[in-house]
Amino acid sequence: MLIRIQPEPFEMSSVLDGFGQGAGAIVTFSGLVRDDTGQMVALELEHYPGMTEKAVTGIASRAAARWNLIDLAVIHRHGRLSVGAPIMAVATAARHRAEAFAAAEYLMDYLKSRAPFWKREIGPNGPGAWVAAKSDDEDALARWD
């Protein structure tokens, strides 16, 4: 299991190097900085050092146990990220694709609403609005109960 919380960019190819030996299916997901306003220059991600690592490790451990994963990786960046830059990635390796897909969706749902990150839009004139959490994202967690 690989968990990395870091400001630096990462290469998906290096995350996947040697990943999931013996698996029958690997699913990867990458989240990129999207310009929702048409005026965004970057996204600033604040986080809670210490709790972030703990929360992400907890989420990943529950996913690994629930779907009996062979391997799992979560990389999540913080700091100032340009539009189009990768924010985060997950990779799951399982014997069959159904488990790999489900575990990746579970990871994404929980990382969105339970990992202590806060996004703020940076426009041409500097810091703008904090991104509000969506009630849909919170509701999405109920399907895993």
């Binding site: 989240g31 809670y48 999540h76 924010i87 985060m88 994404m108 990382l111 969105k112 609403s113 339970r114 990992a115 202590p116 990150f117 806060w118 996004k119 904090w130 991104v131 509000a132 959490a133 919170e138």
Partner: peptide
């Protein structure tokens, strides 16, 4: 204390 989280 913090706002609802917006990770991912």
């Amino acid at each position: 204390f913090f706002p609802p989280m917006t990770g991912g």
